[in-house]
Amino acid sequence: MTAQKVGIDAGGSLIKIAFQERDVMHYKKYPIGELESAFSWLKAVAPNVMAALTGGKAHIVQEKFFPNGTIVPEFQATCEGVRLFLLEEGKKTPDPYIIVNVGTGTSWHLVDGESYERILGSGVGGGTFMGLGTILTNESGFQHLTEMAVKGQKENLDLLVKDIYESDEPPINGDLTAANFAKGLNVKHSGADRMAALTNMIAETIMLLTVQAAAIHQVKQIVFIGSSLIGNPFLTESLETYMKMLGLQSMFLKNGEYCGAVGALLSI
């Protein structure tokens, strides 16, 4: 590694690292529990690297590994990273637009020209997926839980609108959720069904908050980023479906989980 600058996003669950080498951007990520090995590697291959840090654990990383590193406000880093990725992917968004960052929790940012502000936050996100998913299934591992969700049937646990109306014609889409997990132990279901229902509940929560924020700020374009969306097809497809249903345009960035790290890197 010959890079002299590095951007680091030290979040609640993952450490994301971005650095440029020979005009090519490289990305690495590590579980927060592997912090020591992540930065021992970085300091070994690039002992004099300049670091810009962001995220909830940025000060801890700075104090322990990069005392001369700079701290970049998390929301600034996120929005600047999104701008760069939108440009690189050739995607145009009319101002204003909303960034939905699905990490350990979920944050909403309003971007209007050069200005941006955090407008909303929720504790429902990737941490919910991992924590409650493990409790509900006695299984662990992000990839494993996402694979279970894809195989499950949420309707085996969720009470749908058509379940309430039975033979009558429902006034809204019958496949919409009337009550999450309402069927409980009354019906037979699997661990995969629980993960599907949980993922759907997370998607619905994010959708409901997003549509309210979009209405308040008169926005139609939503940009989704965050590590909890990567390799999680059930969640991303559910969000995309709900956004389309509500008349909102959704966009998922290819390397959206690294927006914070890239935004920090841009500050050097």
Rank of each mutant, 00 (worst) to 15 (best):
31 P>K: 07
32 I>R: 03
35 L>N: 01
35 L>S: 02
36 E>N: 15
36 E>G: 10
37 S>T: 14
37 S>V: 15
38 A>K: 05
38 A>F: 08
39 F>E: 03
39 F>D: 02
39 F>V: 08
41 W>G: 08
41 W>Y: 14
46 A>H: 06
47 P>T: 14
47 P>W: 15
47 P>S: 15
48 N>W: 07
50 M>C: 12
50 M>P: 01
51 A>V: 09
52 A>Y: 04
53 L>K: 01
53 L>A: 04
53 L>R: 00
54 T>C: 08
54 T>L: 04
54 T>R: 01
55 G>A: 09
55 G>H: 03
56 G>F: 09
56 G>C: 11
57 K>G: 04
58 A>S: 14
58 A>E: 03
58 A>F: 05
59 H>F: 12
59 H>I: 11
61 V>G: 02
61 V>A: 07
61 V>R: 01
61 V>Q: 03
61 V>W: 00
62 Q>S: 15
63 E>R: 13
63 E>L: 12
65 F>E: 03
65 F>H: 07
66 F>I: 06
66 F>V: 04
68 N>W: 09
69 G>Q: 05
71 I>F: 09
72 V>Q: 00
72 V>H: 02
74 E>T: 10
76 Q>K: 12
76 Q>S: 11
77 A>F: 00
78 T>I: 11
78 T>K: 02
79 C>Q: 00
79 C>L: 03
79 C>E: 00
80 E>I: 03
81 G>Y: 03
81 G>E: 04
82 V>P: 05
83 R>Q: 14
84 L>V: 13
84 L>F: 15
85 F>K: 03
